[in-house]
Amino acid sequence: MKMNNNLTLKALAALFTIASSISAHADTLLVQSTTSTANSGLYKYLKPILKADTGIELNVVAVGTGQAIKNARNCDADILLVHSKESEEALVADGYGVKRFDLMYNDFIIVGPSNDPASVSGSSDVTASLLKIAQSQSTFASRGDDSGTHKKEIKLWDGANVDIDTASGHWYRSMGSGMGATLNAAVGMSAYALTDRATWISYNNKSDFKILVEGDNKLFNQYGVMLVNPEKCGNVNAHTGQQFIDWLRSDTGQNAIAKFSIDGQQLFFPNAN
């Protein structure tokens, strides 16, 4: 028992050391980010460049856009980097974000099995393609998690006048998962899915899946960045946070984003200015 007490004390001491060592860094930012930017390896690539340039370090929490925004509302972030312009603007309007900046873009694509039961391959008309999928009742895997991609997808279905609520559970499968898990599920059940191009390029479990629909202007995917409002959230590291946003929007930052590629394919296209 005595030994146990000692260990407990040591453990508690260790806890406080860990706790204090983490909150100590003034140059460390907590970023609530959408998964596509994190999972594609963008931060891993940017981090050393950012560190060398500014001394800033990033701690990235990668969740769906909806979750990231909620976490930011709870003040659990310095920086929010997501891709759902309307939700972001609502956040700024509510006073939780200081100012939203366009940062970069890529596009959404529809991927699916190579046998393509709805015959949408090669189309650049997303509305028509979704209609074909609905009419042929081909299986479609949706994020269903209030993420930026999910919000985009709902908007696209609305545009095609397809009632996905009635189809849900039949050919329309709401996964309630992240992009990767949804793609895994789509591959598993030969379903179509909407994904951002960055996630798709860096995704490793493609099987016989291909990009089937791309190039529609409606599939534009804009990423935005904002500082969480220090007036609402006293803990926000505003100075460093602003410095980070300025760097991202600077020529250095934008060039760095443009140079990030996987297998020779550029994943994000800077458009801060």
């Binding site: 999972n39 990767g180 898990a181 895994n184 591959v187 490793n204 479990n205």
Partner: peptide
């Protein structure tokens, strides 16, 4: 969980 979501099974 992360590797699974990246599809790197």
């Amino acid at each position: 969980a992360l590797e699974t979501s990246k599809g790197d099974l």
